[in-house]
Design a protein around this nucleic acid. Structure first.
Lengths: 331, 331
DNA sequence: GTCACTTATGAAATCGATTACACACTGATT
DNA sequence: AATCAGTGTGTAATCGATTTCATAAGTGAC
């Protein structure tokens, strides 16, 4: 590995001059600059970022903490962030908690030790300990997905969008609506979307049947199972005429079950999802859903973070992104 | 930011002793160790990774270069890698070329300047310049997806799997098979899969019609368009009775077009994809496809890289992953 | 001819860790 | 009493950059 010292010797200048050439700082004569650049070109020398960071306290690295990489939401968000960051010469250091909440704190510390210039956390479950950790972290920080008091964040209108979707279902004439959600420890997807459902039902004076409200996981098979339980439970009695699932994948699982046992969607039972997964428009019938702009969320988060970085101060700005109802054929 | 010096002072020991405690190296008395750990705990001190890396030449960071992050293949691969790396205390520094080939070289250099312990490149198009760059890079390196001479890699059996798929189509009785591929500069997906198609056709003495062979991009709309061109072109003349698309998304686009203009799949025309996208089993009819183990590819790549890192030498081991034909309803 | 300013360069301190080396203190062994 | 191995600790060099400061030469104004 070449060092600045060797380059300096080869170009017959001091290390300071090499540094000046490479960083376009201070005065350097044209002759010296040329010699240095030639040597750099010839040798393919690249300065050590560590030595640099040690002095300058800037790493040009952003730490990102995700619950899981291989989900559409995550990868779209990272895509959006990366777009903004890479244009500014920042790279992303990726960590994933694989849904183990303790890891969030662990990774925040790790990223701090790596002296990242800022941290973006895609939050799912937030607890008091995590909030404390974030508060005492003196580093630019943005949370995505969950609103944390006093902390800069990008969130979606989970409550409103959910309410809107349920309203749309109701206005199509459905009255007996089942709900498949996720654990409420996920405030945004679990709690807010459920509240939106309940609120909409209440506003339309519809009753919510306990046996038609299920909590499950994020994947397609979970949706399938939850739907199965609802339908089998209802067998002798009444059957819902619509199902509101809080994610597209859950909805698709539900549809899968309904199709298997022979229901016509949406004639006998309607289904709706949320999240506008790619896949949602290619299932049969095409799924009615809500689009959140994940990529934009990533971009906004990146911009908020960069803002903190250049101003060198944390803030608690909040960006709340809109949503779009996409009516397709499943309701 | 706290430094080792301050910790040393607070614990009434030298910096060396603090370092010894934290790295469990050398001799430290129980009393000193306790004092140091107490101070560290109380202050929440985390050593600077930069200073550390500067001395030790180890960063515990792996550079990863992807064409694009928000694709199923990419995110699965990253997931697999991350699994292995994070268990060994390595983090992933992510960069994406957004399909601009020059960026691959740029990022290799950048990652080198960041002193990563190794690089994984998810290769699409490879050219002579890139190969030179890789060769002269004295850093553990693994390529995924494309076989590069003399370089360690994890690849799929693109030729064989494609041949197998086409054979399966033919054995179902289809004879007039159209092909939708991608640019051949992508050796694996573009060239090898096409060769597999041609080979299978040849072995079964079937003719390949030029007007039924199209090259397009990786997304769903591209598949739609390519299919449209094939069908409209064929309007007056014969129409294919099957379409072999080199990716699931292309296949789904093709299906979408065919369904729109009223063809029954697979009765009037069969469709097959490759890649076992999540979505493939939920489209109607469920898509016949080939499964490649992307997550495993990521894991294998990580293991190959770690092997080079611990042995401190590059190698050119090759891992070739298998595939699985998944027959569903579309053929 | 002096002064102020701009330009050009290098010596040396610095960032925050690790680690080789020196030194001191135990006990045990000869 | 001398030697030695095993512990425990601190000093100082080191990693590879940036940056402050000192120095010096050239330029133009007065």
């Amino acid at each position: 590995m070449l060092t600045i010292k060797e380059i300096a010797e080869m170009a017959n200048v001091s290390r300071a001059t090499v540094s000046r050439v490479l960083n376009a700082s201070g005065y350097v004569s044209e002759a010296a600059r040329k010699r240095v650049l030639e040597v750099v070109e010839k040798t393919g020398y690249v300065p050590s970022q560590h030595a640099k960071s040690l002095r300058t306290k800037q790493t040009k690295v952003i730490g990102v903490i995700l619950p899981k990489i291989s989900t559409e939401t995550s990868s779209r968000i990272v895509d959006g962030m990366n777009d903004v960051f890479s244009k500014q010469g920042f790279q992303i250091l990726l960590t994933t908690t694989n849904l183990e909440p303790e890891k969030e704190i662990e990774y925040i510390r790790l990223l701090k030790s790596r002296q990242v210039d800022g941290i973006v956390l895609f939050a799912t479950n937030i607890n008091a300990e995590l909030i404390t950790e974030i508060e005492q972290l003196q580093l630019p920080f943005v949370a995505i997905g969950q609103d944390i008091p006093g902390v800069c964040s990008v969130t979606y209108e989970d409550f409103q969008s959910s309410k809107t979707m349920v309203k749309a279902i109701i206005e199509k004439g459905y009255k007996n609506i089942a709900f498949i959600g996720v654990d409420e420890s996920d405030r945004a997807v679990g709690l807010d979307r459920k509240q939106g459902f309940l609120k909409s039902m209440e506003e339309h004076n519809l009753v919510v049947r306990k046996e038609w409200v299920k909590t499950t996981n994020f994947d397609i098979p979970s949706g399938y199972e939850a739907m199965k339980i609802i339908m089998e439970h209802s067998e002798t009695k009444e059957i819902p005429d619509a199902v509101f699932a809080v994610t597209d994948r859950i909805a698709i699982g539900a549809m899968q079950y309904l199709k298997e046992v022979g229901y016509k969607i949406p004639d006998q039972i309607a289904v709706s999802g949320m999240g506008a997964a790619d896949i949602s428009q290619y299932v049969q019938p095409a799924l009615t859903t809500i689009e959140y702009e994940n990529q934009r969320a990533g971009k906004e988060a990146a911009l908020l973070l960069l803002d903190q970085i250049v101003k060198n101060e944390r803030n608690d700005k909040k960006v709340i992104l809109g949503y779009r109802l996409i009516i397709r054929d499943s309701i």
